[in-house]
Design a protein around this nucleic acid. Structure first.
Lengths: 244, 244
DNA sequence: TTCGATGCTTGATCCCGATCAAAGGTTTCT
DNA sequence: AGAAACCTTTGATCGGGATCAAGCATCGAA
């Protein structure tokens, strides 16, 4: 299980790094015309209103998350949103302290839910594409529940590294590398661990050679295969987060 | 927190017990014409194929669940499906040992995903209804992740009791009562607890007067308010599982 | 009725991750 | 630059739930 082979299989093709916001080239010109581009900096909140004034956000770049914080409970990061994802209030349960937050510098398109729905319904392709995307997000949500519910701390962290590697990684000589869009607290809240425990896990991974911090906020994964072996859901993650 | 008041507030109106499969009266005649009614007994599996032969199931009565069982990991019940819910492979991640199982006697409508998609697209109302339903299921999935990730064993169990009470309960003199559609093992797997621990929690709830087992498989919740107070997400559960 | 299989309960023990505490390190604001 | 606030690491200790094991109840089959 602790196979320390140094086989450096570039796991994702080069195009992933310069991947456009939408993964397949589909016509979102209609959306763009009716949407307001919104730029958000790290920690900035976006309104997540209910039906009458409901907005739909389509992520263009960066990373966002929905968080909940019940009084007396640790903050929870419930879901992560990547470029192409669709965010709206009706997809999220009505938890105490619910907010939509930009986790790093992001750009989104915002439009009223009404407009979004009618625009999407105007062409079958757009409809099909939106449904595909929403299905994928549903599957990701369920996978996350599975990870939280069944895996150990180490496995959860490995799962996140695989996810981020697939989404953001660029292959290099030292391994797959990327800028981490989440703070350590964010990661802990997403994995349902506390920051102290996460810090220990991180140190363990560094000692095992699965992880390096080049500069601050920049992570290198030198042994992709060993990382995949460190989580029971690597295949599922690859299917959901890998190139389509 | 342990308010042992015996106020017996009938939490759900009478119609809930004899509630039809779809909660609001909408026209699913079109679906019914193209679907094959399928009856399943407890523990029976239903095919959950990928795209070319993908089926869509619409739950008519009973309770189903999607389960995963990675080798070396305990079985997990990832999601519960109630009457009106839509089940299809693309909504679920590709986890090892994935199966769709009837948890008690159920009836579903099965139809090819293709047919379902075109049927749904034929009228705006059906489209809107399906989207509403899928959004709700997404929200429930996220809520489940939140429960698994942030709550204690007692709170998780209380949450499930509230959910089942809202879905299946009929008010009576002794309190809200219903036949439990899940085995103890099912419940443990759904709440990410092990059966031993669940048994202890159950005993504790009985001792606190929150729970009674009238006959086998029949549960009475004598103190609805106290039960609601036992989970931080009671409001969220009521919003998602209560009468619409 | 007896047998076997399965599932539920309860006790004893263990372990992973939480919690508490203290000591650096970073970022941000003035 | 200096100070304050926040974040990260690491050690020591604690606790909730897992695990193991034994006893008991339930159920179906012959």
């Amino acid at each position: 299980m602790d196979t320390l082979d140094n086989t450096l299989r570039p796991p994702v093709s080069q195009h992933l790094s310069q991947r456009p916001a939408q993964r397949s080239g589909e016509p979102d010109v209609a959306l763009r015309e009716h949407a307001t581009p919104v730029r958000a900096r790290r920690r900035q909140r976006l309104a997540l209103d209910h039906a009458p004034t409901e907005s739909v956000y389509v992520v263009r770049s960066g990373l966002l998350g929905v968080e909940a914080a019940a009084p007396g409970k640790p903050r929870q990061l419930l879901e992560l949103y990547y470029p192409g994802d669709i965010i709206r209030r009706s997809l999220v349960p009505d938890l105490p302290g619910l907010t939509l937050t930009a986790l790093n510098v992001t750009e989104v398109w915002r439009l009223p839910a009404r407009s979004f729905d009618t625009l999407i319904a105007s062409t079958p392709e757009q409809m099909a594409q939106a449904q595909r995307r929403l299905s994928e997000q549903h599957a990701r949500s369920t996978l996350h529940a599975s990870i939280i519910g069944a895996l150990s701390g180490d496995e959860r962290f490995a799962s996140l590294l695989v996810e981020l590697g697939l989404r953001l990684g660029t292959p290099g000589v030292a391994g797959l590398s990327f800028d981490v869009p989440l703070s350590r607290t964010d990661i802990a809240d997403y994995l349902a661990l506390n920051p102290d425990t996460l810090s220990r896990i991180t140190s363990r991974f560094k000692a095992r050679g699965l992880l390096q911090h080049a500069r601050t906020g920049h992570t290198v994964l030198p042994q992709w295969d060993a990382l995949l072996a460190a989580t029971p859901v690597s295949a599922t993650l690859t299917a959901l987060h890998g190139p389509h």
